[in-house]
Amino acid sequence: MAQADMTPRQTAPELTAFQRDLLFVIASVGPAKGTTVKGTLEDYYEGEINHGRLYPNLDTLVDSGLITKGQRDKRTNEYDLTARGESVLANRRAWESERLEGVSA
């Protein structure tokens, strides 16, 4: 009998808005250091993102299989989108496009 996959998985609706923003940033700048991701989000949010918010959310995305976490050097981690993360973002963009069809900005 095949063993069930017990890896925690998340889909776009289960992610927080902050986690979705992390995915979008990593998709645009990845592979990237956490400080690069943090700086890009701080520019968008026009405010400081503290480490206690950033890194636990990055770890959640890693645990969910949406991003990978590798070592750039002995002190620096690097984050990159997985194929599953790309799929979640593509599905989210399609869903948003459907909702905004016919809406002028």
Results as ranks from 00 to 15, higher is better:
V29F: 08
A17G: 10
D73T: 00
E46H: 15
A105Q: 08
T11A: 05
L58H: 09
P8T: 00
R93D: 14
Y55W: 14
G34T: 06
G70F: 04
K38F: 07
L58V: 02
R92S: 05
N91C: 02
P13D: 10
W95K: 14
A17K: 14
L58F: 09
Q19K: 11
N77T: 00
V29H: 06
A17N: 14
L58E: 04
A83H: 15
G102V: 06
I49E: 11
F24Q: 02
G70L: 01
G102N: 13
G34N: 08
I26K: 00
T68V: 04
E42I: 02
G85D: 04
N50I: 00
G85I: 08
Q10W: 01
A94M: 12
T11L: 05
Q3I: 01
K69P: 07
G47M: 12
A27L: 09
W95M: 10
E96W: 09
T76A: 14
T36E: 13
E78T: 02
K74N: 06
P31K: 09
Y44N: 01
E78W: 15
T11N: 07
D21Q: 10
L22H: 08
T36D: 13
I49R: 15
Y55Q: 06
Q10S: 04
Q3N: 08
A32V: 06
A32I: 07
V62S: 13
I26H: 01
Q3L: 10
F24W: 04
D63A: 02
A83N: 11
M6H: 07
K69V: 00
Q71G: 08
V62L: 12
V62P: 11
P31D: 05
N91T: 09
Y44A: 08
R53I: 00
H51I: 12
A94R: 13
D21H: 10
Q19V: 14
V62Y: 13
A2G: 09
V37N: 02
R72A: 02
R9K: 12
H51T: 13
S64A: 07
T76H: 15
S97P: 05
S104N: 03
Y44I: 12
P31G: 03
T60L: 04
Q10H: 04
R9V: 00
T82F: 02
F18P: 04
Q3S: 09
L23A: 03
A90Q: 12
V25D: 08
G52T: 00
K38S: 02
A83K: 12
E96D: 01
F24N: 00
R84P: 00
L22M: 13
E48A: 13
E78C: 08
T82K: 04
D43Y: 13
T60F: 03
V62N: 11
R9C: 00
I26A: 00
A27G: 09
A32Y: 08
D21M: 06
I49S: 11
T82D: 00
D80T: 09
T16F: 14
S64D: 02
T36Q: 15
H51N: 14
G39Q: 15
H51W: 15
L54E: 03
P56C: 06
T60W: 01
A105G: 03
N57F: 10
E101K: 03
D73M: 10
S104V: 09
W95C: 03
T7W: 13
T40K: 11
S97I: 05
A83Q: 14
L81S: 03
L66G: 02
S28Y: 09
L58P: 03
T82I: 04
G34P: 07
T40S: 10
R93A: 10
